[in-house]
Simulated scan of single mutants.
Amino acid sequence: MAKQYKTLGDEIWKNRVEPMNAELFIFTYGSLVVQLVKDYEDYDQVNQQLDKMGYNIGVRLIEDFLARSGWGRCTDFRETMEVISKIGFKMFLNITPTVTSWASDNKSCSLVLDENPLNDFVELPLDAQQQLWYSNILCGVLRGALEMVQMQVEVKFVSCVLRGDDISEIRVQFVRHLQEEVPINDE
């Protein structure tokens, strides 16, 4: 099944995604992070802002993902993470993280990013290496997108090559299924 997801992700990337200049994207994101550091002067606040921005992006990005991929509902959290890894990340960043380190209850796993285009051309200052999660926007994107498909998750980076770690790893913990709610006074 994982091969089917990868094949679909590759097909969507080649035929349904309008390419953009990767370097422009990377440098724009870098400028955004630098501005947040200047504005907040506190790396914890910068991490929170990146997560919040990512969440807002994820809330909107899920519609694009569903429209372009034609994907329906996943059967469980495990399938959801495979689809995100092999189709979602491929569609939007042209990378395919490895889904690994599943908990015995299948409610948490890690996404290992062998490559992360957001990290290209980046070197963190020493004071930032232990506090700043430079690509934390990805955690927010995952959280926002999954919330829109009624999955509450906790998402956090546990390691990053920019901080001197061997790998970049995002840990995703399934919390609960959300109930679909009709907005108040909506008929």
Rank of each mutant, 00 (worst) to 15 (best):
V17T: 06
D127F: 12
K52D: 12
L142D: 11
G144I: 09
N21A: 04
I26F: 02
G54A: 12
Y55T: 10
I95N: 02
T28C: 04
V34F: 05
L61I: 08
P125D: 15
F157V: 11
K90C: 05
I26W: 03
G30L: 01
K14W: 00
D64T: 13
E82N: 13
S31C: 09
L118Q: 02
Y134K: 04
D127P: 00
D127K: 10
L93P: 00
Y29R: 04
G140M: 07
N56D: 15
E63D: 13
K107T: 12
K52A: 13
T80I: 03
M148F: 01
V83G: 01
G88M: 05
F121Y: 13
N116E: 11
Q152N: 15
M81G: 06
T80Q: 13
S108T: 11
V59Y: 09
W102K: 08
L142A: 07
I95H: 02
W13G: 05
Q152Y: 11
L36D: 05
W133S: 14
S110C: 13
D114G: 15
A128F: 03
K52P: 01
V112L: 12
S110F: 05
E154P: 13
T100D: 09
G88I: 04
M81I: 09
V158A: 08
E41D: 10
A145S: 15
A128N: 03
L126E: 12
L61H: 07
K156W: 06
D120K: 14
W13H: 12
Y29S: 10
P125R: 14
Y40M: 01
Q48L: 08
M151N: 13
L93H: 03
V83R: 11
T75N: 13
D39N: 10
T96Q: 14
R16Q: 12
A67M: 04
M20H: 02
Q150I: 03
E154T: 15
S85P: 09
D64H: 12
F65I: 06
L124Q: 09
K90L: 01
K156Q: 14
W13P: 02
W71G: 07
P19D: 07
P97N: 01
D127A: 10
N106I: 00
K156E: 15
R143V: 10
T28S: 14
E79G: 08
K38S: 03
D44I: 00
Q129W: 08
N116P: 02
Y134R: 06
G140Q: 10
L24S: 00
R60T: 06
G54I: 05
I12N: 07
K14S: 06
N94T: 03
D42V: 00
M20W: 02
I84M: 09
I137W: 07
N94K: 11
D105M: 04
K90G: 03
I137R: 04
D51P: 00
P117S: 08
I95D: 05
R73L: 01
Y29Q: 09
N116S: 12
N119T: 07
L124R: 03
L93Q: 08
R60W: 01
M151R: 15
